[in-house]
Design a protein around this nucleic acid. Structure first.
Lengths: 129, 129
DNA sequence: CTTGACCTTACCATGATGGGAAGCCCCATA
DNA sequence: TATGGGGCTTCCCATCATGGTAAGGTCAAG
């Protein structure tokens, strides 16, 4: 299977597959005589694992840890859980920060008449001492 | 006022002040004989404006538009409002995406016993076909 | 054999920020 | 007056995950 097919089968772009290989997240695959990367189902399986983790916002470093745990038959589920819990906290902290910004802005927007006049509480807020 | 003092007075790091200048968000200030940047209250005022907008998550491009509107005495508040409304939508979309990720993960975490056993629905989710 | 689709590597860009090095400058204190 | 420490300058590099592009090799179908 060429990289294009592996990409389609896994949902990870060819570009990112090469990138993940270059940073050591995945192992270099076999190569054809013409230096084409050749993937087997096993590797596509790994790529799908990566895609799912990535879709949940895990960083490359976290994915690397998760992959190691995945391949460790004697892993403790507690180890996986602690990575996930940590990540949930990160996600919630970030979501909360965004929410706080949008709440502040919504408040300002509500008080902006939004017409042809220059008077604007949003600008006033940014300008204030 | 040197860049360090302007930084303290505005809450924008010296590094970022130089960066904002380099990309044209702010005008190059006067220079001393020794090429030191010299800022006056006016410029610090602008920097504070920038910091407030940045703290609400506006991009440099948006801040540039907001600065132009700020300095335009005949602006329509509708123009400011529309930038803000657009940004609120962006923020909410991003917050929602993070929230969705964390909800999915929380669900998985709840079903992970998190002990010494390798059995783990989080890993299982990433692995599944 | 040609053509088009695919692959390879290598480099550049994003956005906002920080880090660091090399060198110059200014002020206060000994 | 000399010196030391801290601040300033520019320039380059790194982040993080991703995309783009260019130059060149390869493969398969017609």
């Amino acid at each position: 299977m060429n990289i294009g097919e592996a990409s389609k089968a896994s949902g990870v772009s060819a570009k990112m597959i090469r990138y993940y290989e270059s940073i050591g997240l995945i192992r270099p695959p076999e190569r054809s005589a013409a230096s084409y990367r050749i993937y087997c189902d096993n590797e596509v399986h790994t790529l799908r694992f990566i895609r799912r983790a990535r879709d949940l916002g895990f960083s490359v470093a976290q994915m690397s840890a998760l992959l190691a745990l995945w391949q460790d038959r004697s892993r403790a589920s507690a180890d996986v859980k602690s990575i996930a819990v940590q990540h949930i906290e990160d996600l919630e902290r970030k979501a909360e920060a965004l929410r706080a910004m949008s709440d502040t802005l919504k408040h300002l927007v509500q008080h902006c008449h939004g017409d042809d006049r220059p008077d604007c509480p949003i600008i006033a807020e940014f300008e204030k001492g």
